[in-house]
Amino acid sequence: MLRPYLAVLSARFQLVLQYRAAALAGFATQCWWGGMKVLIYSAFYAGARAAPMSFAHTVSYTWLGQAFLMFLPWYADPEVADMVRTGAVAYERLRPVDAWGWWYARALAWTAARIAPRAGLMFVTAAVIMPLVGLGRWGLRLPADGAAVALFCAAILAAALLSATMTVLLNVVVAASLTDRGANAFAAPISIVLSGSLVPLAFFPHAFVPFLRLQPFAGLIDTPFRVWNGELAGLNAVGAIGLQLAWTLVLGILGRCAVESVMSRVQVQGG
């Protein structure tokens, strides 16, 4: 049943993993931004009387945010955008596979393959090397116990599944408009702010926070990192993961309807 999807998932994962230069460059930029943010937060915490999160939690949240930055649906799958532009998307219709599942498997592989090396490096840097060289105060703190680690893994997995549904939705917009400009222009600012990547959602005005945590982008960054920090534990964490999965389902169904209707209308270019 799943054979075509797993095959394309693993092929794409391996391909993207080969782009080592891109991963290293990305890692370097993310270290830089992580360092800047941590510096800004230390200045802020030095003067602040009441902060919504402890300094240690904010710093961990920041490093994790850099490690998992690729969960943000910045842009549509470049491979799909390319195919739409050149008309190669025709071949997509020639495969005996469900169009949504096909793009979903690829989006998931693409996200995972960009995250795996960066998250690994970031973890070693912020959680191992920084404490060793005496920068522990500004480094990544580990979760309190094994249960938190297990819940965090579940939340990260859910975030990956959720992120891929968003990428597919962007693909659909690209396929419908025949260009990736429109979709990519609005995706980045919205997702950076609403996920908690710019600043943790807890820093937003009090009245908004509960609502911000209900919207789907929170599931990409805010939810898993609060699980890591132990702010969400036990049943609360399970509920938050449930919300991530519920959004995954909703956006997945939405995407599937959209893919079918767009792809049956999309006029294959050229030939």
Binding site: A90, L94, V97, D98
Partner: peptide, 15 residues
């Protein structure tokens, strides 16, 4: 579509 394309082979010379 899905059942149909499983049974045919297609080559577009330009792609």
């Amino acid at each position: 579509r899905i059942r149909h394309v499983a049974r045919i082979g297609v080559v577009f010379g330009q792609r």
